[in-house]
Design a protein around this nucleic acid. Structure first.
Lengths: 138, 138
DNA sequence: AGTAAAGTTAAAGTTAACTTTAATTATCGC
DNA sequence: GCGATAATTAAAGTTAACTTTAACTTTACT
């Protein structure tokens, strides 16, 4: 009896691209950089699993926070790294710990950015009110 | 009686650069792009006020969140835009509102990124425990 | 007044992250 | 089986964000 494959969902490169709103070449580019390794069909075309899709989402999310592809590669690469010896794992865990504190720093910065924007908004609203007042006089 | 200037703190370009941990040329580059407009000395050297410093910080913060310099320029540029007519102000306020919702989206994404990282961490920890167990048998 | 350190500009160079092109191959619907 | 549509690779091209260089001027210090 051959193994039953639980293939919840597999996509072609253009399907995945459409779902993630990036171009197929961007996806291929990430593969060149070692960020994803999709399976291939008999005819050599790429097949993306939903696990691959999740990974792509992680990459894009990281990008939105200004992480470079290299940083992201380090971040996720370790998930399937050889993991043969403890030393490697310990190192990876330390790296992850570093990223966690970086992210909590980002949280604080997000709040500050919002406050900065708030200041700008208030300035604009004040000016808008002034203009309305002037207009009434005229 | 000449006006008393409350010049809390003024910096040269290299002082500011050191404080913000960027290079002087980065600061000059941002000026080329219209992101800051420092005063000049009689001899044409740039002087940065603490207001300029705050603006630089905003720029760098925006960058850390993956905003492009162009986006940041739009974001802060409006703070000192002509503001001559309401139309302009209304437009700016709408732009700001858009940025606010973008930032709240970022907050949610930050949480997801943390969760992704958490999953990777757990995988590593599990593997570390497995290795320790194996070692005991040997 | 003389000199080292810092600043100025314009222009060329670099790097990361893509995009485009071109030539070839695979897959799908009929 | 045929033609349109989608995929594949390698290589060249593009853009944003800097950095470096070169030639020159200011400023600070003795």
């Amino acid at each position: 009896m051959p193994e039953e494959q639980t293939k919840a969902s597999n996509f072609s490169i253009s399907e995945l691209a459409r779902m993630l709103e990036v171009s197929p070449s961007t996806i291929r580019f990430y593969e060149d950089k070692g960020l994803i390794l999709p399976k291939r069909t008999a005819g050599n075309q790429r097949i993306y699993s939903s696990r691959d899709k999740a990974r792509m989402k992680l990459i894009l999310r990281g990008k939105r926070f200004g992480f470079s592809l290299t940083e992201i590669a380090e971040m996720i690469g370790m998930a399937d790294s050889p993991m043969s010896e403890q030393a490697q794992i310990e190192k990876s865990l330390k790296y992850i710990a570093g990223k966690f504190s970086e992210l909590s720093q980002r949280k604080k910065e997000l709040v500050i950015l919002e406050q900065d924007l708030q200041v700008i908004r208030e300035k604009l609203q004040r000016r808008a009110r002034e203009l309305k007042a002037e207009q009434k006089k005229t």
